[in-house]
Design a protein around this nucleic acid. Sequence first.
RNA 1: GCGCCCGUAGCUCAACUGGAUAGAGUACUUGGCUUCGGACCAAGGGGUUGCAGGUUCAAAUCCUGCCGGGCGCACCA
Length: 567
Amino acid sequence: MVFLSELKSKIIQTLELETELAAFSYPPQSNLGDLSLSCFALAKIRHQSPEKIAQELLVKIKNNLELKKYFSTIKTVGPYLNFFISSEYLATRLIKTIQREKNDYGTSPTGQNQRVMIEYSNGNTHKEYHVGHLRNISYGDAISHLLTASGYQVLPVSYINDFGIHVAKTIWNWQRHPVYNERPEPKGYLLGRCYAQASQLLKDNPSGKLEVTALMKEIESRQGKNYQFWQASRQWSIDYFNAIYQELNIKFAHIFYESEVVNEGLKIVKNLLAQGILKKSQGAIIADLEQYDLGVLPVIRTDGTALYVVADLALASEKFQKYNLKQSIYIVDVRQSLYFKQLFKILELMGYHKKLLHLTYDFVTLPSGMMSSRSGNIITYQELKDKISAQLLLETKQRHAGWNPAKITKVVNNLTLATIKFEMLKVNAHKIITFDITESTKFDGYTACYIQYTYARWRSVLRKSVWTDLLIKTDYQKLTAKQEKLLLLKMAKYPEIISEAAQKYNPSALTKYLFELAQLSNDYYHEVNILKSSPVIKKVRLILVRTITQVLVNGLDILGIKVLEKM
RNA sequence: GCGCCCGUAGCUCAACUGGAUAGAGUACUUGGCUUCGGACCAAGGGGUUGCAGGUUCAAAUCCUGCCGGGCGCACCA
């Protein structure tokens, strides 16, 4: 059992409290205590003042012999019963736990190995991969890791739309501008640029739109020259996405494609029409969900072509048929909330009574305004990466004049990706991120670089230490500095942070935690010179530093960030 | 018009879901390298939590009404 929850249940047992009434929290200041039991709920039930309850509980608990092993002091502060955890006990238990569990420290079996599918990234072929996708993929990957750490069997998947009208727009424009074929950039990247231009060219261009529609019909017929070009260009995008996933170190268990499920979707639509779940209206086929307060969802256009939901219906069926899922999570931006309510309702009407969850996040915008790939006002993954890299390259070169270019590139690449992921995760998912590139490339304060730097510096200290002190007693009683107690407590809270972040689908709780842990440890670094301590003290301090680096590694791993030994 | 989200220090964000003196980063001012990595650390100023009511021992948090911003509501995905 997790260390702190063990202490809490010991307190509950001793006081013979009901679990629901035991409201634990952590005092805002360390001089008040390490752990706190607030007495408001009890006061209400027992019709006494919370202060008095706290006093009574103190009398009941203060001479308990077992608890004296764990707590050096127990006292009341107004309506709170506050506990000071014995430093020696804390150090011994915690350090041994982290040493034993290593990369598993912080994980829990809560999920009981239930299988959860989580869909994210969801790029469109023949279109840009931009900062919005980066928020999606960073968030999805972090959620995926958090659920894994919480004992779920996670199947990360992606769904790529390779068959929508955007495809025809891009191909239409590609054929009109042979110059795209001659450019040196990756073709998958160029398709995105080509799409943005196509959107501009098709504005107020009815004859162009007709050509695009005709082109789409040909692609949908799955034969002919344009279909062949679709096949080839589709692969360019897929290759490009795979390169991005590899760069970001993100692995999907499976990738679905719209072109592979859309025909099955059309069959489903036919059935639903027969069942009366869908109906014809104004020449189109719709789902009328007015009675559920969900409006109307168009399914098939007047011209007979399929809308997005057709493939989504087939995709959902396939997910549940092929994989034995307990739950299916979709990570898609908040603007599609109504759409997903509609989709889930139709699935329910079809007889799927499965646990479906649409996890939302808000947009990434620019200081200049909302991003839109139609207006061309977007920042692609490539552009963002280049700008951040350039800044980091300057800094790294300046610090390590003697390093060879390959080494510098390796560090810069790592920090660039770490920065992107961290920036995408540190803000609550339901808030808009205004991505100011110039601001984001100043790597001071609450940033990935700060945490990476902290880790690298501790590793440097550990490398310089000599571990020949095997005969020296490991004496955790020597960890008496104020920062040492704070660090131990902070690390003891790590498992709670993970399970909370998982439960609330909130990785920003973890980014904040890791920053605070790094801050505390930097303070410690400046306060105490470890390598110059006496041998007995040095030994336990080095062990403490090792546990700090372990917790940093574990936390960053969940965020999808790899640590650096040197930077 | 209906629905959802946001509004906290100059700026960017936290606040254990109703609890202790609303905290960080940044910017600004000042201090710290003969010292384990200065991408660091310390100190300081900076707040009527958009406004007005209400609920209670207790409200940034819950309820009502306004104000400001964003998004969604039939053939985009």
